[in-house]
Simulated assay, not measured.
Amino acid sequence: MSIFSGINGFIFDLDGTLVNSNGVWESIDRKLMEKNHIMLSDRELHQAAAMTYEEVLEFFCSKGLRYSLEQLRSESNELAEKEYRYNIFLKDGAEEALKIIKARGGKIALSTASPRRLYEPVLRRNCVYGMFDAFITTDEVGADKDHPDIYLKAAEMIGVPPWECIVFEDVLKGIVSAGNAGMVTAAVYDEYSSEDYVTMKQIADVFLMSFRDILPMLMNN
């Protein structure tokens, strides 16, 4: 039986899942820290790239940064806007997967920590914005992805019960939260979350090195 049997709702994370953007965040973090005369190793910056704003703030403040969360968000997003508008692309096979899901009548939602000023330009530039039925951010639900709120809200917005939804995520905590909410989980490999590769492969319902891995299953479902 296909992993997609009985699945009518498809909930996608953005950064590191649908798009190759975490390298951009590593560059942005480097610029912010250099501006504040704080030096971090390449490994530390690599780790921070896949973190949430809250996690990044805690980590950077432990290194001497004196920013509020709002200041960190504002400066980071300002640096990111041009990149999201012009220089970030979908992961291999992502567009094809979205097209197949849409053609078969599936409902598609985006659940992301990135604000609209970032997710809308990158999705429009890559010609997939119109495939989404709903968009929800961690700010809008008031909880990060340690909690299932964002996935449950996404399911509600597309009108599909949680147990008929599959969540695509590149970070371990997202996979855990979505699984705890009774959803099917698909872990998507990203080099910035590679330290959790083994664990995600063990606990997710399916592990994808590429969206091309699931194209035959989607077409035959």
Score class of each variant (00 low, 15 high):
L123Y: 10
K145H: 07
V122N: 13
I108L: 15
D146T: 15
L152H: 01
L152C: 02
D139I: 00
E140R: 10
L118S: 04
H147P: 08
I108E: 10
D146K: 14
A154Q: 04
D146V: 14
R124T: 11
K153Y: 00
P115A: 08
S111D: 10
R125G: 07
T112L: 05
D144R: 14
D139F: 01
T137A: 03
F132Q: 01
R124K: 15
P121I: 04
D144S: 15
N126A: 01
V122W: 11
D144Q: 12
S111V: 13
K107V: 08
F135T: 02
I108R: 10
G130D: 14
K102W: 08
R104I: 07
S111Y: 09
N126L: 02
K153F: 05
V122T: 14
V141N: 06
A103G: 14
L118F: 05
A155Y: 01
Y151S: 14
S111R: 05
T138L: 07
V128C: 04
K107S: 13
D144Y: 08
E140P: 10
R117K: 15
G106T: 09
A154K: 00
K107L: 13
A103F: 11
Y119S: 04
I150C: 14
A134H: 02
P115S: 02
L110A: 01
V141W: 02
A103M: 14
F135D: 04
A155M: 01
A154H: 04
D133N: 03
N126R: 05
P148Y: 04
R116M: 08
L123F: 12
V128F: 06
A155R: 03
I108S: 10
R124M: 11
C127R: 02
L152D: 04
Y129S: 07
G142M: 02
I150R: 13
A113K: 09
Y129V: 03
R117V: 15
L118T: 08
L110S: 02
L152V: 00
E156P: 00
A143V: 01
A155G: 06
I136Y: 09
S114L: 12
D144T: 15
E120W: 05
G130I: 02
C127H: 05
I136L: 06
S114D: 10
M131D: 12
T138A: 12
Y151K: 12
E140Y: 09
M131L: 15
E140G: 08
D139S: 11
A155W: 07
F132R: 01
I108G: 09
D149I: 07
